[in-house]
Write a protein that binds this DNA or RNA. Structure first.
Length: 245
DNA sequence: AATGGCCCCAACCGCCGTTTC
DNA sequence: AGAAACGGCGGTTGGGGCCAT
């Protein structure tokens, strides 16, 4: 959609009422057809704006709070491998968006990089992130299909299972274990969660069917970890290879 | 208390690849 | 097959908040 042609569209910060309405319609219609969703919802926003607001702020799978040391290390290392592939990097960080990663890098790393070496920014000898990555290298990821509850209805997912080659202990999750992250929610975010819970109770069967279809897609593997989930792609093999070669 | 500078991040923009019709 | 619509991505911007002076 051409923003310049849509003179009557609202711009700038989202109002609470707009967020509430967007959450309702995304829950009802799903995360697709954003222009259509923007029209039928009555929001005077572009589809793109709606998508961005949902993806970067309202999506309940997003994690809030400061970046952990592990996340910081991952961002830094993957940026060294891939450059400004923010969405690709963000997919390695459950609950983080490309925008968030991009902003974080710009404010925390780029400035520091001026006149400094990489090893001065991240103390590799003491950094637990490196240990984490080494541990990850030593693991083998297998996939299992499970059914869990998502927003009050069944959701079939493929769940990652890491098998540590040394200890032979299994841990579930994506790249990290759940305990690696602290989830913080503001009162406003709690309200959004409440809206979603309320709406989901009356979710239509059609939407449930569609949700299941998406989850079982060959190329999109939804990984459910506790109360949140994220999308992983098949290039995890590529990730593993390039990271450790 | 006022103000100027800086930081952070939500939101916008434009481009491009993919999907749909 | 081709045009239009849609969705994703990376770069950029603007405004609010914080802090030093």
């Amino acid at each position: 959609m051409d923003y310049k042609k849509e003179e009557n569209l609202r711009r700038g910060p989202w109002l609470e009422e707009e967020d509430e309405r967007l959450v309702k319609f995304v829950t009802l219609l799903g995360e697709r057809r954003w222009d259509y969703l923007a029209r039928v919802s009555g929001l005077k926003r572009s589809g793109k704006s709606c998508r961005l607001r949902w993806m970067n702020y309202l999506n309940p799978s997003l994690k809030r709070g400061p970046m952990s040391l592990e996340e910081e290390t991952i961002i830094f290392q993957l940026h060294a491998f891939w450059g400004n592939k923010w969405s690709k990097i963000a997919r390695r960080l459950p609950g983080r968006t490309d925008n968030e990663v991009k902003n974080y890098y710009r404010t925390h790393f780029r400035k520091k990089l001026e006149g400094q070496n990489y090893d001065k920014i991240v103390d590799w000898s003491r950094n637990t992130g490196e240990d984490l990555l080494r541990k990850y290298k030593e693991t083998e990821i297998t996939w299992t299909r499970t059914t869990t509850q998502e927003h009050g209805f069944d959701k079939t997912v493929k769940e990652s299972k890491q098998i540590n080659m040394e200890s032979d202990k299994e841990t579930c999750g994506g790249i990290f274990e759940r305990e690696s992250f602290g989830v913080m929610k503001s009162p406003y975010e709690n309200r959004i969660s409440d809206w979603i819970s309320e709406i989901s109770t009356g979710q239509s069967d059609a939407n449930v069917r569609e949700e299941r279809t998406c989850s079982s897609s060959e190329n999109n593997i939804n990984i459910n970890v506790g109360s949140w989930w994220f999308q992983e792609t098949r290039d995890i093999e590529e990730f593993s290879c390039s990271l450790w070669s």
